[in-house]
Computed example of a mutant assay.
Amino acid sequence: MARTWEGAAGRLMLALAALLHRTVTGKAARRRLHDCRDAALRAAYRRGVPQEVLASRTRLTQGRVREVVTGGKRPPVDEAA
């Protein structure tokens, strides 16, 4: 009986490991995580947190934070004369 239980428990743990692997490391999961992070960055920016602080706390570049808080559009570039 113990052997049957160990085999069932092993298969259950394997199924759980596979499920976690797909939900945590899959492309869709990563996209959802980034969307949630970007929404939090935009909310913090709207509440007065400077872009430099957002970049340093999240370890993102200032350019990426700027792109996120402007809604995915790159800021206008000043042309040099």
Results as ranks from 00 to 15, higher is better:
Met1Phe: 06
Ala2Ile: 14
Ala2Asp: 12
Ala2Cys: 13
Arg3Ala: 10
Thr4Tyr: 13
Trp5Thr: 15
Glu6Met: 06
Glu6Asp: 15
Glu6Leu: 10
Ala9His: 08
Ala9Asn: 08
Gly10Ala: 01
Gly10Cys: 04
Arg11Ser: 07
Arg11His: 07
Leu12Trp: 09
Leu12Val: 03
Met13Pro: 07
Leu14Asn: 10
Leu14Cys: 09
Ala15Glu: 08
Ala15Arg: 13
Ala15Ser: 11
Leu16Glu: 10
Ala17Trp: 13
Ala17Met: 14
Ala18Thr: 07
Leu20Ser: 15
Leu20Met: 11
Arg22Val: 13
Thr23His: 11
Thr23Arg: 03
Val24Ser: 01
Thr25Lys: 15
Lys27Trp: 07
Lys27Leu: 06
Ala29Phe: 00
Arg31Gln: 07
Arg31Ser: 01
Arg32Gly: 00
Leu33Val: 08
Leu33Arg: 11
Leu33Trp: 06
His34Gly: 02
Asp35Phe: 09
Asp35Trp: 07
Cys36Met: 05
Arg37Tyr: 14
Asp38Lys: 06
Ala39Met: 14
Ala39Cys: 15
Arg42Ile: 00
Arg42Pro: 03
Ala43Gln: 15
Ala43Asp: 15
Ala43Val: 12
Ala44Ile: 01
Ala44Pro: 08
Ala44Glu: 13
Tyr45Arg: 05
Gly48Glu: 04
Gly48Ala: 03
Val49Glu: 04
Pro50Asp: 03
Pro50Val: 04
Gln51Met: 00
Val53Arg: 08
Val53Phe: 09
Val53Thr: 06
Leu54His: 01
Ala55Val: 01
Ala55Leu: 03
Thr58Gly: 00
Thr58Asp: 00
Arg59Val: 09
Leu60Phe: 13
Leu60Met: 12
Leu60Ser: 07
Arg64Val: 07
Val65Ala: 00
Val65Asp: 01
Val65Met: 04
Glu67Val: 02
Val69Ser: 01
Val69Asn: 01
Gly71Leu: 08
Lys73Glu: 13
Lys73Ala: 10
Lys73Val: 04
Pro75Asp: 00
Pro76Ser: 07
Pro76Glu: 03
Pro76Phe: 04
Pro76Met: 03
Pro76His: 10
Val77Gly: 14
Glu79Tyr: 02
Ala80Val: 15
Ala81Met: 10
